[in-house]
Computed example of a mutant assay.
Amino acid sequence: MDTAPRDTAYVEAAPGVRLWTEQRGDAGAPALLLVMGAQAAGLGWPEPLVDALAEHHRVIRYDHRDTGRSTWSYEQAPYRIADLAGDVVAVLDGLGVERAHLVGMSLGGILTQLVLADHPERVLSATLLGTGACSTTPYTAPDGTRAPVEELPGVDPRILEEWARSVEDHGLEAELDRRVRHWQLLNGDHIPFDPDWFRELERGIIEHTGRYDTSGAHARADQSGLVRTEALAATEVPTLVLAPTAEPVFPLPHPRHLAQVIGGARLVEIPGMGHALPPAVLGPLADAILGHTRTAS
């Protein structure tokens, strides 16, 4: 049961850009900021996971630009992916948080790495999942062979095919069908997929947003200037890399590479997990995150 108090507020990230935020849990507890993936609103972090984390933390989640209730601004004022990392700091500033534990998934993992490299004084710890490294350091396999980053495995072809499809407006239920189909591919082939659970998740996000279209802004945003090889190698911020064993977007060995390039990082596997947050992984995920933040604190 959700008993943690909630508080919502808007913070200004840039002139004319406001970000919707939600806080849950004890205001005096160490802050933990959840950073979601591309085109994903903050409600993409499932309620049971947020509640579990809020038992020990002041949990903050927010809507990226062009998602949820935050400003949809890309068409009028295009921005860079790096600007979205600035938004992470803007959320902390706007809510009066000096330092926080950061948890980043997918694009959120990229943004978390940028903050970890550029603003380590704001980060108590970092947890990364479903993401690639902002580093040009080659991957070293267990047998000692080295592979350039560009030679690591790519996205599952079935997902690339889905991403290549044009998104057409055929009404709310058809859009929900499309999103559920997408989640089924991201879920991977190991954990049973519950379409009804993901449909209700997306229905809640659409109700929160007040519209069911997507802007595609994050796919079009400038991706230059994301490499932080030296800063990540030198960081002293405690960092946990979670390795979903059935990850179809950043498949193994991407998490192992990520753990290699970040100074002092630890690697923990989440068996069967893909690039989604179904109920079966929420308990292990919460345990891993809380174990890391407890140790880091």
Results as ranks from 00 to 15, higher is better:
295 T>W: 15
2 D>E: 14
137 T>L: 10
55 E>Y: 00
120 P>S: 08
275 H>M: 09
202 E>G: 00
171 G>K: 06
216 G>P: 09
189 D>W: 10
241 V>Y: 06
55 E>L: 13
17 V>W: 06
114 L>Q: 14
73 S>W: 06
53 L>E: 04
178 R>C: 02
239 T>S: 05
125 S>L: 02
58 R>S: 04
58 R>K: 03
42 G>I: 08
36 M>V: 03
192 P>L: 05
141 A>P: 01
106 S>A: 12
294 R>C: 01
68 G>M: 08
151 E>G: 08
33 L>M: 14
291 G>Q: 05
187 N>P: 09
66 D>R: 05
260 Q>A: 08
91 V>F: 09
69 R>C: 07
239 T>F: 07
15 P>E: 13
219 A>C: 00
97 V>C: 13
221 A>H: 07
22 E>G: 00
264 G>H: 04
266 R>G: 08
77 A>F: 13
206 I>L: 15
149 V>Q: 10
245 T>N: 11
10 Y>V: 00
79 Y>E: 09
146 R>E: 15
151 E>M: 11
40 A>G: 06
66 D>A: 12
144 G>M: 04
202 E>F: 15
282 L>V: 05
39 Q>T: 14
263 G>Y: 08
85 A>E: 04
100 A>T: 08
275 H>N: 11
234 A>W: 01
115 V>P: 01
292 H>L: 02
156 D>R: 08
259 A>H: 06
109 G>F: 03
237 V>Y: 08
261 V>S: 12
27 A>E: 15
149 V>A: 09
104 G>W: 08
194 D>P: 07
91 V>K: 05
98 E>T: 14
160 L>P: 05
241 V>G: 06
93 D>K: 08
224 S>D: 14
138 P>F: 01
294 R>V: 00
102 L>N: 10
87 D>G: 13
102 L>P: 06
196 D>F: 03
172 L>V: 13
249 V>M: 14
241 V>A: 07
141 A>D: 12
89 V>I: 15
112 T>C: 15
178 R>T: 09
30 P>F: 14
218 H>E: 14
52 A>K: 01
